[in-house]
Design a protein around this nucleic acid. Structure first.
Length: 485
RNA sequence: GAGCCGUUAGCUCAGCAGGCAGAGCACCGGCCUUUUAAGCCGGGAGUCGCGGGUUCGAAUCCCGCACGGCUCACCA
């Protein structure tokens, strides 16, 4: 804590010299990254020296050389060098900089020039303190490596690791592309409740909370699905929502308890249409983020060119297991097989037919999928909200999109028949699946008529992982959940 | 929840056949007017994650706990 004392002492000195510890404003006309962008190619010293600039940023490095000093300031996006000379600033003013440290926010005015080595630099004729950093920044060369500290103190990560800042800039860009993609297609963006009194729209354990005035228990939503479809009943033919879902499950490199999902519903369309639309959306993102349809994820090639592979759930699973298709409809066999394959130290083996099917699919098929693949036509038992398949009554019109082994999207032709929906809900409750609850209000909404509708959920965090080559979901969530320290 | 690995200065890391707790960056002082991981000289800086044990002596060996990472499981 000695360094903190030294920095406090420096602040005290600066205050004595007339600097404000926390001034009210510094109207910097030039953002650092804009300056760098604008004068990147300008080599003409005379032209540069006519350009007066006023900018601000955080000091990242300092090189003091007696009567001259170089330092870099950063706006998080880029950095620019500043040059102080005693004969430029005057002996007195130059001396003030002595009390500045790495980490301080500084405002700078001056003219541009290029140094001997050709670096664009601001020759300062004035500078001022914008905020003192009383604590030292992590080291300039190695940055901040400690993963725990990077997540707990994301601000430090953002200051010293440009790669981290890039990820969140890209994330914002991707969300923008997605939003525009749907707005361009005449969608309406909506916000539905995050606090639900009845659970639905997915199978996951919920977070519980309580409203005092109404004395009512509530869940944080696990999916917005049932509300969005109520809106389609209400005549909003194309709706989407980008928002947080909350699932009270484990954490992993692909799971955070709160995560961001896009859900959209397009009336009069079916799941086949959505497959094409999904390819189009991801290709648009690829073109804007990668610049082309091919990219790399964790050292392996990804190719998003059309057409993407389509695998039928039951067929591909039977094939991967080397058994007859029909055998997969034998519930006892599937449960038995799942228990066999299940690792000894893995906790509880799948307890229901649906879970067993999911588990087997993940073990035998999903893990091996890398290039974008639509897994389609899931059995009804694991798809309670999807419309019965037009050709096989045991199946549904559903697909999941797998990219790089990750489930990125889930979509179906929406089940519209209120009576069948009631039966499916009741079936779920009978199987005692987690979160299974009959939402009678939703059944009533369906009774007013849901037109043919195609709906899809896309995991935004995982999508961002793919396009930023991030190995963990925590790299793409600013403040991932960590244990309280 | 299970297995494996990790936690030493603000940061990045050495030290771990048990014997005075170290380096670089950062910070402070000195020299230095085109440096850029600036350089040179000097200085200050530690609950070695926490608790217990073994020992004459523990950062180092043993046990427990906390936090984190990876893998597996529930899950998108």
């Amino acid at each position: 804590m000695q360094e903190k004392e030294a920095r406090k002492e420096n602040l005290k000195r600066l205050k004595e010299l007339g600097y404000k510890a926390h001034p009210y404003k510094f109207p910097a006309e030039d953002r650092v990254f804009r300056l760098v962008e604008k004068f990147k190619g300008e080599k003409d010293q005379e032209k540069l020296q006519k350009i007066r600039v006023k900018t601000a940023g955080r000091i990242l490095t300092i090189r003091r050389m007696g009567r001259a000093t170089f330092f870099h300031i950063s706006d998080g996006l880029d950095k620019i060098q500043v040059f102080l000379r005693e004969n430029q600033l005057g002996k007195e003013k130059y001396r003030h900089f002595k009390y500045f440290n790495i980490g301080d926010w500084i405002g700078v005015e001056g003219i541009l020039f290029r140094t001997k080595t050709g670096e664009l630099t601001i020759l300062a004729n004035d500078f001022t303190l914008l905020a003192k950093s009383l604590l030292p920044l992590p080291e300039k060369w190695h940055g901040l490596q400690d993963v725990e500290v990077r997540f707990r103190k994301r601000y430090l990560d953002l200051i010293v690791n440009p790669r981290s800042r890039e990820i969140f800039e890209k994330r914002a860009k991707i969300v923008g592309i997605i939003r525009n993609f749907f707005l361009d297609r005449e969608f309406v963006e909506v916000e539905t409740p995050m606090m639900h009194s009845v659970l639905g729209g997915a199978a996951a354990k919920p977070f519980r909370t309580h409203h005092n005035a109404l004395d009512m228990d509530l869940y944080l939503r696990i999916a917005p699905e049932l509300y969005l479809k109520r809106l389609v009943v209400g005549g909003m033919e194309r709706v989407f929502e980008i928002g947080r879902n909350f699932r009270n499950e484990g954490l992993s490199s692909q799971h955070n308890p709160e995560f961001t999902m896009l859900e959209f519903y397009w009336a009069y369309q079916d799941y086949l249409f959505l497959m094409d639309l999904t390819e189009e959306l991801f290709q648009k993102i690829a073109k804007e983020v990668w610049g082309e349809l091919k990219g790399q994820y964790q050292g392996r090639d990804l190719d998003l060119s059309s057409p993407w592979k389509r695998l039928k759930f039951m067929d591909s699973l039977a094939e991967a297991m080397g058994i007859e298709k029909e055998t997969l409809w034998d519930e006892e066999f599937v449960l038995k097989k799942a228990k066999e394959v299940f690792p000894e130290d893995g906790g509880n083996p799948p307890s229901t037919y649906g879970k067993a099917l999911d588990f087997l699919f993940d073990s035998f098929v999903k893990e091996r999928l890398w290039q974008p693949t639509f897994v389609m036509d899931h059995p009804k038992v694991i798809s309670p909200l999807a419309k019965q398949h037009r050709e096989d009554p045991r199946l549904t019109e559903r697909f999941e999109l797998i990219i790089a082994g990750m489930e990125v999207a889930n979509a179906f032709s929406e089940l519209a028949d209120p009576e069948e929906q009631l039966l499916r809900f009741q079936e779920q409750v009978r199987r005692k699946e987690e979160g299974a609850e009959v939402d009678m209000d939703y059944i009533e909404a369906l009774s007013y008529g849901l037109p043919p509708t195609a709906g899809e959920g896309i995991g935004i965090d995982r999508t961002v992982m793919i396009f930023t080559d991030s190995p963990s979901i925590r790299e793409v969530i600013l403040f991932p959940l960590l244990r309280k320290k």
